[in-house]
Design a binder for these strands. Structure first.
Length: 199
DNA sequence: ATGTCGATTTGCT
DNA sequence: GCAAATCGACATA
């Protein structure tokens, strides 16, 4: 069973549900014809405009964040700390700026290429755990912002790996302490017991 | 094992 | 100017 997630998966209303359901799905990129990918093990929910931690808080629109207002199933990649490329899945319908940050994968496809991109000798957690590291392993950069997740450059598949509720752990989001009470929300999701999640 | 710090774009003040 | 959805180098222990 290998099914690319359809538009209808992404355009749904509840971004928290989408964030949880993305765990266990498989993220792939084909950059310059080269395939890499893995199973999503860690996600974070960003529900702008009401979410102080979201770049779209208060309905903010800038050149960087404009793509968050696109229809669900679009890639939003932004540069963090001037260095790291962070990959988000835009959800909900056009003009509702919800997004899911993909923070880590369990390597599946293109291991050698991911090692090369990460300048590592052997597979270990740090190759694909953490949003900046994961993006680097998959060759994701800001040039992918605005790319449709139903295309052939970057996409997500359901390979029949279903997780039950007790296999999902919810914690606070990382690095958003500035967001006040919104930082307390348990909107980071990881697969229980999986090695390939960030520390 | 734990702590500090630099890298360097974007956006707000 | 300053802080940010981070990471890795290097120091100290």
């Amino acid at each position: 069973m290998k099914i690319k997630l359809p538009r209808s998966f992404y355009t749904r209303e509840d971004v928290v549900t989408i964030s949880r359901e993305l765990l266990g799905k498989c993220l792939f990129t084909r950059i310059n014809g080269l395939l890499t990918g893995g199973l999503i093990t860690e996600t974070e929910t960003y529900r702008g405009p009401e979410d102080r931690a979201s770049h779209a808080f208060g309905g903010r629109r800038t050149q960087r964040t404009e793509i968050m207002y696109a229809t669900g199933g679009t890639a939003y990649v932004y540069l963090c700390y001037g260095i790291h490329h962070l990959f988000n899945v835009v959800t909900n319908r056009k003009d509702t700026p919800h997004a899911v940050l993909i923070r880590a994968i369990e390597p599946m496809e293109g291991i050698e290429l991911m090692l090369k991109r990460r300048k590592k000798k052997k597979m270990e957690r740090s190759v694909t755990a953490g949003p900046g590291s994961m993006s680097q392993a998959l060759g994701i950069t800001t040039v992918l912002t605005g790319v449709d997740l139903l295309g052939n450059e970057i996409w997500i598949e359901d390979r029949g790996n279903h997780l039950s509720a007790n296999q999902i752990i919810s914690t606070k989001r990382i690095g958003v302490d500035y967001a006040g009470e919104h930082a307390e929300r348990l909107w980071r999701f990881t697969i229980k017991g999986n090695l390939w999640v960030s520390k």
